[in-house]
Design a binder for these strands. Structure first.
Lengths: 194, 194
DNA sequence: AAAAAAAGAATGAACGTTCACTTTTATTGT
DNA sequence: ACAATAAAAGTGAACGTTCATTCTTTTTTT
């Protein structure tokens, strides 16, 4: 029997509150007291689950990133063609960013600031391997431009973050049509020219 | 004669210190005292130039953004073809992000977090008009995909931010070759297909 | 000499964290 | 089965620190 006495619910509530508050106010403007209040918990209780504030956001980051990549690669079939495989992953990622908007926003903020320890950031990248493998195959088959993975990511995946941020700000509405257009742009930018 | 007694040098030093410290530690971890120290100024002096900390970063953001767009559109010739005009602007922007790395990093951080007042953010966007005009012309001529400006920006300009951040982190080296490749990807993603 | 600019020390508020204590849950002895 | 007891989880108030900002004094400029 698992010796997990501390309520997983409380932990989850703390992580959830952290995401929401950091999204809306940024790390520097979300005091532990507010996180505790939103999670219906005493400030002191946070320290039963996390070492300190930094540890709280680090762990939150790693967890959300894991969810993200798990979602991205679910049902991914390595026997698919490179193009079909990429479309599948891309659309899963887009899906995640739309459905789990709060989580995705949190990741975007973490990835663009010195909020997170470098170590935790490294940890978060690890699970992206299936996509890198697909790209390697695509390059070998001459279907994908022979670019560094950073370039491929910058042009095919990362733009979604920009769109999502503007979606959240209300300056842009990412509907079905836009999504298909975005996918076409993403694919255009990385597919090899004939 | 201008009634500008307060030293412009001090103000500049404060802005510069703000950029450097916020880049390396984030807004929440850069106290006014450190900004003052780096600018060789008393903490109290900051308040002769800026209302408060928020005003300091807001003004810094607006100034840097203005520099950025000024640089981007310098020598821009509206009689150029859409493709040539876009290449010119794109390369000026890339140039800025490489040469004025600190400034560009600061903008990226501001644009991806709730660090800056919404009002100041709006202020910053205003000067991007020449690029939007060029795109409008490109769409009319059938040279550029008929996408929303947000999509065009997401796929052609914004990827540079991602690359720059990774450059700063040391995980990626953006040299001459990469730059040309990046430009090709940018153009591929927004040019209309024949 | 007056006024502006700058400095450093001072202040009060806010924050992360800890402490002393209570409540809840699990274990033991009968 | 059930008190009695021990251990774990949880709490609210308090602590020490840090920070943004202001106050008082000194320096510089006109």
């Amino acid at each position: 029997m698992a010796k997990l006495q501390k309520s997983i619910d409380k932990r989850n509530a703390l992580v959830k509150a952290t995401i929401e508050l950091v999204n809306n106010n940024g790390f520097h403007a979300t005091p532990m007291s507010k996180i505790a209040k939103m999670a219906n918990v005493s400030p002191a209780t946070i320290y039963l689950y996390f070492e300190n504030k930094q540890d709280l956001v680090n762990q939150t980051y790693i967890e959300v990133k894991a969810e993200y990549t798990k979602y991205a690669f679910e049902n991914f079939d390595t026997t698919l063609s490179v193009e079909a495989g990429f479309e599948h992953i891309w659309k899963r990622i887009a899906d995640f960013k739309l459905k789990e908007c709060e989580n995705a926003m949190f990741l975007a903020q973490c990835d663009n600031t010195p909020m997170i320890d470098e170590e935790s950031r490294q940890q978060g990248i690890k699970h992206l391997q299936p996509l890198l493998d697909l790209w390697a195959r695509g390059k070998k088959e001459g279907i994908i431009k022979p670019l560094s993975d950073y370039l491929l990511y910058a042009y095919s995946i990362n733009p979604l973050s920009f769109l999502m941020i503007n979606q959240k700000r209300g300056t842009f509405q990412l509907d079905k049509t836009h999504l298909e257009e975005a996918y076409q742009s993403a694919w255009s930018s990385i597919k090899a020219c004939k």
